[in-house]
Design a protein around this nucleic acid. Sequence first.
DNA 1: ATGACTCCCAGTGGGAGA
Length: 264
Amino acid sequence: MKLATWNVNSLGVRLPHLLAWLASHPVDALVLQETKLTDDKFPQAELARAGWQAVWFGQKTYNGVALLVPASQAAPVDVVRNIPGFVDEQARVIAATLTGQGAPGCMRVIGAYFPNGQVPGGEKYAYKMRWLQALQAWVRVEVQQHPRLVLMGDFNIAPEDQDVHDPVAWAGQIHCTDEERAHFQALLGLGLYDAFRLFEQAPKSWTWWDYRNLAFRKNQGLRIDHILVSSALKPAVSACEIDKEARRAERPSDHAPVLVTVTD
DNA sequence: ATGACTCCCAGTGGGAGA
C-alpha cells in the first residue's frame, strides 16, 4: 500500500491539482496540510465524485488538515482532531485508524501540520516548542497503543544539514535550530524511523522550495515534510520518495508530496 | 536588501508562510 503527505497551501486553490494528482497517484491514504478552509467549505462532494472519502479539520485562513482514503476502502475510525489535552486554537492534527480490507490489519495514521515558529525566540517559536512537547507525549502513547503507526506531515523541521540547500545560511534559523532538531530526534526516540532515510536518496532532495528567487529552478529548498514509520512497520517499508514533479505544475503548492510504500 | 512569491482577508494594504 502507498501512503502520502502533501502540504497543498490552500485546498481551495489547489483542488484541481489535487484531483489530477490523485488520478495519477492511486494512494491508499493521503494527509493534507494547510487546507485553509473552515469545515463547512471542505470540498467533500468534489472528492466523493472523484472516488475519495475524507475526514477533515480546518479553520479560516490558516492551517487545516485532512485525511483522504479511497471510497472503496473502509471508513477511517477513531478519528482524533488535534492533540488530546493540548488546548489549541489552531487546526493542525488529524489522526485515524485504517482498518484495511484484510490481513495484516489496521494501521494508525497521524497527519500533522507542525507550527512554523517564524523566528527563534519569538512567541510563535515558544508555541512551536510547547506544541512539539505535547505531540511527543501523545505520540508516545499512540505508538504503544498502535504498533503499526505512521506519523506524517509538514514538520517544519529540517532534521540535518543534508536536508538544507545552504546549511551555512540557515544555521540557527527557523526549521534548523538545535532545539527543533532535538524534538525531531525525540520523535525518532519513540521508536519511529524517517522513511526517506531508510533508502539511498539523491543528494539535495527537498520537499519545499520558496516561491521567490526562482528557488525551484535553482533547486534551493528544504526537506521539512516527513513520513515516520513505527518499528513494526519498518521492515515492510519498501520505498519512500518525493514527488518533485508535482512542484512543476501550473500554480503549484510550494511543497511537494512525499510517498511511502508499505509491502505487507 | 526591511526585497523577491503566493495566499488570505481585506478593501487600493498587510500578515503569514518558510
